Deep mutational scan, measured.
Amino acid sequence: KNAAQIVDEALNQGITLFVADNRLQYETSRDNIPEELLNEWKYYRQDLIDFLQQLD
Rank of each mutant, 00 (worst) to 15 (best):
A10S: 04
E9I: 04
Q13C: 08
D50G: 06
Q54W: 10
K42S: 14
Q46M: 08
R30H: 08
D56S: 14
F51G: 00
F51W: 10
E36T: 10
D56I: 12
D56V: 12
D50T: 11
Y44E: 00
W41N: 00
T28K: 03
N39T: 10
E35D: 10
D31N: 11
E36K: 08
R23Q: 15
K1Y: 04
Q25C: 15
Q13I: 10
N2L: 13
R23T: 15
I33G: 01
E27S: 15
K1Q: 04
L38E: 06
R45C: 14
I33V: 12
D56T: 13
A10H: 02
E35C: 08
Q5R: 11
G14P: 01
Q46S: 07
T28R: 03
W41G: 00
L48T: 00
V19Y: 14
D56A: 13
Q25F: 15
R23C: 14
D21F: 07
L48D: 00
V7H: 04
I33W: 03
L52H: 01
L38F: 09
A4E: 07
A10N: 02
A4G: 07
L48A: 01
A10E: 01
S29K: 13
I15G: 00
L55I: 12
Y44W: 07
L24R: 00
L17S: 02
R23S: 13
V19R: 01
Q25E: 09
L55A: 12
Q25Y: 15
I33F: 05
R23L: 14
G14F: 05
A3W: 05
N2E: 08
Q53D: 06
A3H: 02
N2M: 11
E40S: 06
D47L: 13
E27R: 15
N39S: 11
Q5L: 09
L55Y: 12
A3F: 04
G14K: 05
E9P: 00
V7E: 00
L37P: 01
Q13H: 13
Y44H: 08
Q25G: 08
Y44R: 07
Q46E: 09
D50L: 12
Q25H: 13
D50P: 04
D8C: 15
Q53V: 13
F18M: 06
Q5A: 08
T28F: 04
L37R: 03
V19H: 04
Q54F: 09
L11W: 12
L24W: 02
K42N: 14
K42E: 14
L11T: 08
I49G: 00
P34W: 03
Q53F: 08
Q5T: 09
N32S: 14
Q5V: 07
D47T: 12
Q53T: 14
E27I: 15
L48S: 00
K42G: 08
L52G: 00
I49M: 09
E40P: 02
P34T: 10
I49N: 02
D50Q: 11
F51L: 05
N12P: 01
Q5K: 08
Y43K: 12
Y43T: 12
G14N: 05
F51V: 02
I15A: 03
D47V: 14
A10L: 03
D21C: 13
E36N: 10
D21M: 06
R30P: 03
T28D: 02
W41A: 01
V19Q: 03
N39F: 11
E27V: 15
V19K: 01
G14W: 05
P34G: 06
I49F: 06
E35Y: 08
A4S: 10
K42M: 14
D31I: 11
I33H: 02
W41S: 00
E9R: 08
L37K: 03
D21E: 08
D31S: 10
W41P: 00
D8Q: 15
L24A: 00
Q25K: 10
L38K: 07
D31W: 06
E40L: 13
D8F: 15
N39M: 13
S29V: 09
W41D: 00
E35N: 09
L24T: 01
D8K: 15
N2Y: 09
Y26P: 01
N32P: 13
D8V: 13
S29T: 13
T28G: 05
L37G: 01
L38R: 06
I33T: 03
E27C: 15
E9K: 06
Q46C: 08
L52Y: 03
P34L: 04
E36M: 08
E27Y: 15
N22Y: 07
F51Q: 02
L17A: 01
E40A: 06
T28E: 03
V19P: 02
Q5F: 05
A10G: 03
L37D: 01
A3T: 04
V7P: 00
Q25M: 15
Q46G: 06
I6R: 02
Q13V: 08
G14I: 02
L17W: 02
L37Q: 04
Q13P: 00
D56Q: 14
P34K: 04
L55C: 09
L24Q: 00
L38Q: 06
N39K: 12
L55M: 12
D47Q: 14
D50M: 11
K42A: 15
T16G: 04
T16D: 05
L52M: 04
S29M: 12
L11G: 05
N39I: 12
A4H: 10
Q25R: 11
L48H: 00
I15P: 00
R23W: 08
E35L: 12
L48M: 03
D31V: 11
N32G: 08
I6N: 01
L48C: 00
A20V: 15
R45H: 11
V7N: 03
L38G: 03
P34R: 05
I49W: 04
L17F: 05
Y26M: 05
A4D: 06
L17E: 01
F18C: 09
T28W: 04
L17V: 03
N39Y: 11
Q13F: 13
Y43A: 12
T28A: 07
Q46Y: 07
N39A: 14
N39C: 08
A20K: 15
Y26L: 03
D47H: 09
T28P: 12
Q5G: 05
F51K: 01
L24I: 07
Q46D: 10
Y43R: 13
Y26H: 05
A3P: 13
